[in-house]
Nucleic acid binder design. Structure first.
Lengths: 340, 340
DNA sequence: GCTTTAAATGACATCGATTGCGTAAAATAA
DNA sequence: TTATTTTACGCAATCGATGTCATTTAAAGC
């Protein structure tokens, strides 16, 4: 099955003109007489002519398409960020292609390369939890592909980055828990090597320190798959509650971990085990939970917008940009029943 | 900023060969001597040569890319369906491009046309709630673009379709509510013109009929934006509870409506207003709700897989396919506290 | 009536890769 | 030795659109 489209050649043949003339008429060139233009435009409309973007991409080496790679869009933070990106892209005349890495390094490499070699003018990416080697991105970046990182950024590649103040988010949340009287605050977080994991941990530690609560390493649990695999969260929780000093509160880093943690707790402790919960989450549904969940919410839409704006700036700049900054957005903590 | 890649020409120039020879060597043609092949392959590897997919698409009029258009991927049904589609596409050597219509007819038209004219070999689509005119799809379909519909299908276009048994889903859910003793079962549903809305309503009515419960039209409320706008759900609920016969149960059609309905009820009736809830939803979080939610769950992943399989079948078939069928999957009802 | 000049249009190369056809050189057959 | 076949490669067209550089035509100038 093949999908055929009208081309400039069809118009030229029909009207007994050359391809060049038709092309110029369509682009409203001053060199073409009004009469001819009218003729061409009318016929083009009649046969529903559309320029073939593939041919244009080949010629112009531009596709007006931007690639987005996120771990998963069932994660609300990412789907909201994508909405922000789309809003900017569409109003700037760009289209958007989206793929998921499913937290897999291999899939991320495939997607990134497919997009790069397939035409995108630039790339917005939040790396997978597995990604520790950045060669696939470095290589493309060095060869001139504009890249902007958001949320899960790669420190060692010098370009624009857009993140949330993860330190402060975790600091504020931890402080809130401390103020509520919790002393043994566990922190279930994502893979250790991730930049945002480190920042969140720092915020957590600083809050403890500022409140003169000793840091207990055994209260920190890493989930190497970012909570994608339920059992890792289960293992983390099990091992936390095996210790003689049991946590009275849990701070979770990441949407996935937050939402997986709750059913796991329910499953493990059928009785009303009183533990406070607080977590990073952009889900709209946490209010409906039992108990309703206190969360750290990130301005995902705005982060997406900012990242897209920066990327388009790079793409459209005439000369290579040398100075890059990192935009930092504030998250907000929303207090509900789970930390009472 | 431009992103430059090595081309066949670069290799040809360097090795003093013609482009054709290089091309054939890379494709391991029998016409090329082993020696030359080795030379070319080695140099290609050295400079990290990749064929330019844009040029290939132009030439072959095939892109090995499939377009997916869904209303929103924050809707779990769609994100799960997409995962199913990706799994099949990747293992068949296709890449996938995804866009959201955001339940907007205009955006859907733009996305569909962008994809069609941009290169996709085929299209998987679930139409937006606003879409009542199908010309944008008909036009492309008539011109030979392979299209497969899933979930929100378009009846009047003759191609493969993959859906859930919406009639049965609604029938089973309503039957369950009736068996639990509920008599005044309201049905809050999506836009009236949608095929799945009609089927679900039919299932609902049949269940009433089979149980000798009179159908009350005032218990049916349509949300023309499919619940995307909170106020429409609020209005629906308000008007339901204004009547003298108040509903004792609500059956909601659609993920969005289901999850919006609950906070709205909470907001409108702060006291413990005892109403049973049941709804179509593929969210993983409904278990955490207060009360945990009885749902009709659709096999979204499998639906996505099936749709992609059918599409690839059309794309790869040598001769036009004339006979199309509609695959129907069973949904399952999961009983929790909200219908007790 | 012949030259200059502007206006309108066409021919052709280009972007990167593929491919049908043609052909020089080498190998084989007669 | 000459004729034929095989091997190994190059040329050029193609896909759709753009842009440079002619070229034609007509109007204006002398």
């Amino acid at each position: 099955m093949k999908f055929e489209s009208a081309t400039i050649k069809d118009i030229a043949l029909k009207l007994n003109l050359s391809k060049s003339t038709v092309s110029r008429a369509l682009r409203d060139s001053y060199e073409i007489s009004e009469q001819t233009k009218k003729l061409v435009l009318e016929y083009a409309k009649k046969i529903n002519y559309r320029p073939n973007p593939i041919a244009l991409s080949l010629k112009e080496r531009r596709s007006h398409t931007i690639g987005i790679v996120v771990p998963e869009f069932s994660n609300n933070f990412f789907s909201q960020a994508i909405n922000g990106m789309e809003s900017i892209a569409y109003s700037s005349g760009y289209n958007v292609i989206i793929t998921q890495s499913h937290e897999s390094y291999d899939r991320e490499v495939i997607n990134v390369e497919h997009m790069a070699y397939r035409s995108v003018d630039g790339l917005l990416i939040s790396v997978s939890v597995e990604t520790e080697n950045y060669d696939h991105l470095k290589k493309l970046h060095e060869r001139g592909l504009p890249i902007v990182f958001f949320d899960r950024i790669v420190e060692e590649i010098d370009t624009y980055k857009v993140v949330c103040d993860n330190f402060k988010g975790a600091y504020d949340a931890t402080t809130h828990l401390i103020k509520k009287g919790f002393k043994n605050i566990a922190h279930i977080t994502s893979a250790e090597q991730m930049f945002i994991t480190q920042k969140r941990l720092e915020g957590y530690r600083k809050a403890l320190e500022d409140n003169k609560i000793p840091f207990q390493p055994q209260l920190i649990k890493y989930c190497v798959h970012g909570g994608k695999i339920t059992s890792e969260v289960e293992d983390a929780i099990t091992s936390l509650f095996k210790k003689k000093i049991k946590p009275d509160a849990i701070l979770s880093a990441g949407d996935r971990i937050t939402t997986v943690m709750l059913p796991v707790m329910k499953k493990l402790f059928s009785t009303n085990h009183k533990v406070a919960y607080m977590g990073f989450s952009n889900s709209d549904l946490t209010d409906l939970f039992c108990p309703s969940l206190s969360v750290i919410r990130q301005p995902a839409f705005e982060i997406g917008q900012a990242a897209m704006e920066q990327l388009i700036k790079i793409i459209e700049s005439k000369r290579p940009i040398k100075e890059f900054n990192t935009q930092i957005f504030e998250s907000s903590i929303i207090i509900k029943e789970s930390t009472n």
